[in-house]
Write a protein that binds this DNA or RNA. Structure first.
Length: 555
DNA sequence: GGAGACGGCGCC
DNA sequence: AAAGGGCGCCGTCTCC
């Protein structure tokens, strides 16, 4: 391996060129933000034996310029591009190969590890020593011989992995990359910060911390310890093997001393969850000042789940409390003189299921824009109900449950009915939606892989007890994920300058736009979401609800 | 003292 | 007969 400590030349057009950026002194919690750390080096490699290294960030823009017509190969390009944009203009580009995302497209569900070291071992039989990386984070003293080797090797390995991956990549995998994942990557890179009402959040954090402490003080054990809870209950004549909400709620409903304890533990759990997961840490670590207000920028993982769903972390914005209270989402607000647009698909997964199964009765319901849950009530109870009927909410878990293989027994438990009744409900639903039932029966037999509508493979583990449920659910969840990703990128292309998306939550897009543009932007996001669904699931119309609000917590 | 598993629970 | 699909984060606990 020859290391050349200088700028790379201009390679011929469409040369695969691996790049790997090393940063020093990055804060662990903020690896996804261009706000901490310093440029250490960039290694560039078009031939795995010859690596160019630069140490000066001032040279980044020249490198970018010289390599503009090459196909960039990066392992987790989201990180490198986020950081490199501190020193050079890098618009969305077609000529990009992300070995990390490509590996997910190829082997989602098959492997569960996707680091460069994992890929090096899988494809090249090389065991990478990740120890030297620590020298970039702790106490960085500038480049030395060992670090130089390490940085150069990463670029070389990335290129070699890409060359191996290429042998497995089929035409359709490239289509998924170029039409779904790569555009979604650049859309996510363009997300803007989500403003937070810091004072309101702090007040919630304070309050819940205090409440949790009050209850903890009067309990005879550490209520955060399932072990201690079980020991305590055993000592008082009640054997339990789990201490989750279902179990404790049953005890809490008995009129006894233990019932009071169980009730208190559940209360404690509620407050302490809010004080910890949604507490001060959320505020202290991730806040960024922007003009005279504060925003957060979560880290979106483009393929966060094996199904293709995105995930979010640092902080996870996709699990902010929504059902019990709106006060948390009310802390997410529009910027000064702006409005939030909250747009979500109505019954996205049932529509996807209709498209995948081509069940004529399901298709008819959606084509006539009827409400799937009201229709379900008709099928199950023979009752015509309106959207306001409380029965409608009871129907929701039925269809959702079906799509991930919920057993009739658990369905009955959730609905608070007898197991036989649960069974009867399933029978009625399957008898009515016959083609859907056949689709489910067929797909759950698969043991190798299933596909989404784009043709993405999701590998199954035939030895897992979940294999049937995964087979049922993955095409539906995975297709839904593709729809929202495509919607994000269609919207991105409509708004290349200043893409005002601030969050995406599986079937929902949140934008923060100047008030005067609110109606226009609301239409743009709605149209983009409908177009995306139309492209991937053309047999079903998708309805989108869009609201213009001041906070995320408004109904 | 740190890593990782686990129980638990927030969301879609 | 049968752990309800997918995540990330927290505190606890075990192990090294």
């Amino acid at each position: 391996m020859e290391i050349i400590e200088s700028l790379p030349p201009s390679f011929p057009d469409n040369t695969y060129v691996a790049m790997d950026l090393e940063m020093s002194g990055m804060e662990e919690e903020l690896l996804h933000r261009p706000t901490t750390g310093k440029f250490a080096c960039l290694s560039i490699c078009a031939n795995s034996d010859k690596i160019y290294l630069i140490y000066e960030p001032t040279q980044v823009s020249e490198v970018i310029k010289r390599l503009n017509n090459c196909i960039w190969v990066m392992h987790d390009a989201k990180f490198d591009i986020t950081q490199l944009r501190r020193w050079a203009d890098i618009p969305p580009r077609r000529k990009l190969w992300d070995t990390f995302l490509m590996e997910h497209i190829l082997w989602g569900g098959y492997y569960d590890k996707f680091s460069l070291a994992d890929l090096a071992r899988r494809y090249l039989g090389i065991v990478l020593d990740k120890e030297p990386r620590k020298m970039f984070s702790d106490n960085y003293q500038g480049m030395n011989g060992e670090l130089l080797q390490y940085a150069a090797l990463d670029a070389s390995i990335t290129l070699q992995v890409q060359q191996e991956q290429k042998k497995y990549i089929k035409r359709n995998d490239m289509k998924i990359w170029h039409e779904i994942e790569r555009p979604a990557l650049f859309a996510v890179l363009a997300f803007q910060g989500f403003r937070i009402d810091v004072d309101a959040w702090k007040q919630l954090a304070d309050y819940n911390e205090k409440q949790a402490q009050i209850i903890k003080d009067r309990l005879p054990m550490n209520p955060s310890s399932p072990k201690e809870i079980m020991q305590y209950f055993k000592k008082h004549g009640k054997n339990i093997s789990k201490t989750n909400e279902d179990v404790l709620l049953k005890i809490a409903n008995t009129n006894s001393d233990l019932g009071k304890i169980a009730h208190d533990i559940l209360e404690y759990r509620k407050y302490s969850k809010r004080a910890s997961t949604y507490g001060m840490k959320f505020i202290e670590i991730y806040l960024e000042k922007e003009d005279n207000y504060y925003v957060i920028h979560p880290d979106y993982n483009i393929i966060g789940a094996e199904t293709g769903r995105m995930s979010s972390s640092r902080p996870n914005i996709q699990n902010i409390i929504a059902h019990d209270t709106a006060e948390y989402r009310k802390c997410f607000i529009a910027k000064p003189n702006h409005k939030l647009i909250i747009a979500d698909y109505s019954a996205q997964e049932p529509r996807v299921a209709a498209h995948l199964s081509q069940d004529p009765k399901l298709l008819k319901i959606f084509r006539e824009h009827r409400d799937i849950y009201c229709e379900l009530a008709k099928v199950v109870y023979g009752k015509e109900i309106t959207k306001k009927d409380p029965l409608r909410n009871k129907m929701k878990p039925i269809f959702l449950g079906l799509t991930y293989g919920l057993s009739s027994r658990h369905l009955a438990e959730n609905m608070g009915i007898e197991p036989e009744e649960g069974k009867a409900i399933y029978k009625k639903v399957f008898d009515h939606f016959k083609v859907f039932a056949e689709y489910m029966e067929n797909i759950k037999k698969r043991k190798d892989y299933v596909r989404t509508v784009s043709g993405r493979r999701i590998w199954l583990n035939p030895y897992s007890s979940r294999v049937e449920r995964n087979a049922l659910n993955s095409p539906i969840q995975g297709t839904s994920a593709e729809i929202i990703k495509l919607a994000l990128s269609i919207l991105h292309k409509k708004l290349p300058e200043g893409y005002p998306v601030v969050a995406v939550i599986h079937d929902e897009i949140v934008m923060d736009v100047p008030e005067r543009l609110a109606d226009l932007m609301s239409k743009k996001v709605t149209d983009s979401m409908k177009e995306a669904a139309e492209i991937l699931c053309p047999s079903v119309p998708f309805d989108v609800d869009a609201k213009i609000c001041d906070s995320w917590g408004e109904k």
